[in-house]
């Protein structure tokens, strides 16, 4: 029968499997891109925002 089963198989057809080398290289570039931003640390505006919230917490909630 080439109805439900076949169709399902088609739907689940996976893209050609990538080699380990390709996957490793993609992973490396992905992390390089991400870590480029992470290494910038916490910009002042966010540190200040959190400090402000901390200090004014009681006032804001009143």
């Amino acid at each position: 029968m080439e109805t439900a089963a076949t169709r399902q198989k088609k739907d689940h057809t996976k893209p050609a499997k990538l080699g380990r080398e390709v996957q490793a290289r993609l992973g490396q570039q992905l992390r390089a891109m991400y870590d480029d931003v992470v290494s910038q640390g916490v910009p002042d505006r966010f540190a200040e925002l959190l400090n402000r919230m901390d200090g004014n917490g009681n006032k804001d909630k009143r």
């Binding site: 991400y34 870590d35 992470v38 910038q40 916490v42 910009p43």
Partner: peptide
């Protein structure tokens, strides 16, 4: 968590 949030 901020640096990673920014990267995301």
């Amino acid at each position: 968590a901020v640096p990673s949030l920014r990267a995301f």
